[in-house]
Write a protein that binds this DNA or RNA. Structure first.
Lengths: 209, 209
DNA sequence: GACTGTGAAGCCATTCACAGCT
DNA sequence: AGCTGTGAATGGCTTCACAGTC
């Protein structure tokens, strides 16, 4: 499922703009131009304006944007004016790291449960939350009203776990496993492929020096 | 720095194709068509053929591709026919998880050193490798001939650490910090922004249901 | 008959350039 | 004068459709 006519690249940049604006707020800056945002995040000022234009007119000609106002609009657009409970499946190194990652909670993504198939891991605590067996998936998703599932299991079980998440009512999957997942068209899927990122670097390293 | 005229999207897909072919090899499959690869990774068969066409003619008309031959070509193209020693800066949850992540080593990315500023962490062991102080950066990069640096420090110190990596001779940076990094044009940079990925999902969740 | 390789067409995102507002 | 908002132009990736080969 894709959301209407907004380019994904635009959504990604909005997220980055919003973080840059957060920084400006912390620094006490009140007003900003598209040119300054552009410089701060490494794109062109026309790009910044075009991205914003998909959603409305947030600035003042001749003046620029009010930092706090623009920030508010972006957070709303990104759906970050609310909490998003999430569940992590796979309490290995990566899953555990993500469960404890402050950056998620800071943006409203609260990890409400973390599950694993391994009996050894079940019952261990990561900060506040306890690793639970896979059987708890459906119950936790329903009681915590979770719509985002984060998959950090090995490739072999990734599809199976994903199917279960979707059966249990999850609407969006963030996949960290190195496996191409099949999901029905009404479920959102994003892949964070750690090795692929390094491989793009190694490909490009061939061309320098 | 960008590598010549190959679209980045193509490089990413080549990496994914190569993993799919690896699977086919494991399954004992000898021959494959662009249509089968396309089905396996979720793109069109024309896309598969176009991507491969940037680098040569690897198939046989009317027949398809020999799995092992194509796999070999892709690994060579991606620069994965060699080892890539890497260094991780930041031994927090995420850095530690990445240091131990089997997927990297499986593709030739060997984490040769992991550094941290925190005196408490220095000396602790992650599997085989020991967390060392930042001061060891230059020495380790030179003696291990490292060209890839992985940044997993908090946003506040990310730029500083990146500058040091580049000073020490690193040619490519994989950035996990939520900060836009400035690097000179002869240094490669890729960002893996964990929150941004969730935010793209939350944006799109607004449009369903 | 099957499937690759590829020029041409189509599509979509980015950049340009300027009108419009303050 | 300064900066936004936007139609038009550009550039680049993807899809189409078919000629070429086995």
């Amino acid at each position: 499922m894709k959301a209407y006519k907004i380019p994904e690249a635009t959504v990604i940049r909005l997220s980055i703009y919003s973080r840059y604006l957060q920084q400006l707020i912390d620094d006490g800056v009140k007003s900003v131009s598209s040119d300054e945002i552009a410089g701060g995040v490494g794109v062109s000022s026309a790009q910044v304006r075009k991205d914003l234009a998909y959603f409305g007119e947030f600035g003042t000609r001749g003046v620029g944007y009010k930092v706090d106002v623009l920030y508010g609009h972006l957070m709303k657009i990104l759906g970050l004016d609310r909490k998003w409970p999430a569940i992590i499946v796979g309490a290995g190194k990566l899953g555990s790291a993500l469960a404890l990652y402050q950056g998620f909670a800071a943006r409203g993504f609260n990890v409400e449960a973390i599950l694993d198939a391994d009996a050894e891991k079940i019952g261990t605590k990561l900060d506040e939350i306890e690793v639970e067996p896979l059987e708890m998936m459906s119950q936790r998703i329903k009681e915590k009203n979770i719509s985002i599932g984060i998959v950090t299991v090995p490739a072999a079980t990734a599809q199976e776990v994903t199917d279960k998440l979707i059966d249990s009512g999850v609407k969006a999957i963030l996949n960290f496993s190195p496996r191409v997942l099949k999901v029905p068209p009404n479920v959102l899927l994003r892949n964070v492929d750690l090795s692929v990122n390094l491989e793009v670097l190694s490909f490009n390293l061939n061309f320098i020096k």
